[in-house]
Design a protein around this nucleic acid. Structure first.
Lengths: 221, 221
DNA sequence: TGTTAAATGTACCAATCAGTTCATTTGGTC
DNA sequence: GACCAAATGAACTGATTGGTACATTTAACA
C-alpha cells in the first residue's frame, strides 16, 4: 500500500506522514478482513487482528465500514459479486445439451475446489442463518443467473430426447452444488472420521468425474 | 433439575440449600451448551449465557468440563456417539441390494433433515478445521461403520448384476451425505439467493426422492 | 496562499468474557 | 456423629474486544 507505515517508525512521536489512498486502504482492509472471516468466522474474527494485519489502522475500518458487521457484509457482497462474474463468463448456451451440462458441472466443481474461501464464507453465513445476505441490497439485486442457464440447456436436452422431462432446473443446480460444496466444506471432518483427504489431487479428480457422471445419469432418459 | 433454584430465592442471603445430582447437572449443562454452540458456533457461544440458561452455575461448567473448549468437545462427542447409535440401529444387511441402498439413502436424508443441530455442529467443527474431532479420544475410537455397511450391500449388488462394479464404498457414502447434508446446511443461503425454502415439506419430499433416485442411478449398471 | 472537507493516526474506554477464588453444603463412611 | 471428599454457590478479576474521542494531515480549490 502507498501508506507509509515507515513514517511512524522513523518519527518517534509526533509527525505522522502519509499519502491519501482511500480506494487502496479500502481494498487492503477488505482483503485482510476476508482472510480473517474465512479463517475464524464472524464471531471468531477480531477487529484488532484485522487492523493489525492491515497497512492502516482500526480507525479506518470503522471510518469506511461502520462496524464489524458492516465490514463482514462488505466482504460477503464482494464475494457474491465475483461469483456473479464467474457465472456470466460461463457460456453454455452455445453447446449441445450434454456438453453444456458436463461443462457446467465441471466448472462448478472446480470453482468450489479452487475457492475454499468462498465455501467457508458461505458456511459462516449459513451458521448465521444468512442474516447478512438478507440485509444486503447489493446481494438482493444480484440476480444469479445459474438457474436460467441450466433451464435453457436442460430444455434443449429434453427437446432433443436426451434428457428425461419433469426435472426442475433448481434441482439440477442443487445436485451439482451439493456435490461440489460438500467436497470442500466437510473436508476436515471427513478426514478426521474416515482418514480420507478429499483435497488430495487424485481424490479431487475422481470426485470431479463422479460429480459429472452423477449429474448426467440424473438427467438422461 | 433436582437442584433447588428456589432455595436461593427464598433465603435472602446466606444459606443455599440444594441436592447433589452430578449426572443431572452434567446433562443439563450439556443440553444447554449444545443449543448455544449450535446456534452461535464455538466462538459465538458465551459461557455466561450457557450458565445463565442452566439450572446450575458457571462454576460447575468449569468443574466438569475444564474450559469452554472442553465443554464444546463434550457436546461434539456426545453427538457423534448418537450418530454411531443411529448407524448401528440401521440393519440393511438383510435386505436385497437395491432396497438396502434405498433404505440407507432415505434414512440418511431423514436423519439430516430431522437433526439440523447435528448438521450445524458439523459445520461449526469444519470451520474450525475439525481440530476438536482430532483431539478427541472418544471420537477417534468411534469407528463409524457406515462405509462397511455400504460396501457389503454394494458388493452384493454387483454380484447380483444389479450394480456396476468399480465404485468405491466411500464415494457412495460421500454422494449420499453430500445431498443430505447440503439440503440442511445451505438452507438459509439458498433461501436468500433463490427465494426457495428447502425446509418446506414438499421441497423435502421432492429432494428426498431425488437423493434416492440419484444414488440408484449412480449405482445401476 | 488560505480554507475546508476528506482521510488518517493515537490513545483511550466501557462492556464483555473466559476463567478463578473463596467459602459452603452434601452425603457417604467408619 | 465426626470426618472428609465430592459437589455447589456467589462474587470477583485480568484480559480482551468492539467501538470512540480527539487531534492531525492531506489535497483539492478558491
Amino acid at each position: 500500500m502507498s501508506k507509509a507505515a515507515s513514517a511512524s517508525k522513523t518519527t518517534g512521536r509526533k509527525p505522522a506522514s502519509w499519502t491519501q489512498d482511500p480506494e487502496g486502504v479500502r481494498r487492503n482492509i477488505l482483503a485482510v478482513a476476508k482472510e480473517e472471516f474465512v479463517e475464524n468466522g464472524l464471531s471468531g474474527a477480531r477487529v484488532d487482528e484485522i487492523a493489525a494485519r492491515t497497512a492502516t489502522s482500526k480507525r479506518m475500518i470503522y471510518y469506511y465500514f461502520g462496524d464489524k458487521e458492516g465490514l463482514y457484509r462488505a466482504v460477503l457482497e464482494e464475494m457474491y459479486e465475483r461469483i456473479r462474474g464467474f457465472e456470466r463468463s460461463l457460456d453454455i448456451a452455445s453447446l449441445p445439451p450434454v456438453e453444456a451440462m458436463t461443462l457446467l458441472a465441471g466448472f462448478t466443481f472446480d470453482y468450489h475446489a479452487e475457492n475454499p474461501d468462498f465455501v467457508r464464507l458461505v458456511m459462516v453465513e449459513n451458521i448465521h442463518h444468512a442474516r447478512h445476505l438478507a440485509t444486503s441490497d447489493r446481494i438482493a439485486t444480484l440476480n444469479l443467473s445459474a438457474i436460467d442457464m441450466i433451464r435453457e440447456a436442460y430444455e434443449r436436452g429434453v427437446a432433443a430426447g436426451l434428457f428425461r422431462p419433469g426435472i426442475e432446473a433448481l434441482d439440477i443446480h442443487l445436485t451439482i452444488s451439493a456435490l461440489a460444496f460438500y467436497n470442500v466444506s466437510n473436508r476436515a471432518s471427513i478426514r478426521q472420521v474416515f482418514g480420507h483427504d478429499m483435497g488430495a489431487p487424485e481424490a479431487l479428480v475422481r470426485r470431479r468425474a463422479a460429480a459429472i457422471d452423477t449429474l448426467l445419469r440424473m438427467l438422461r432418459v
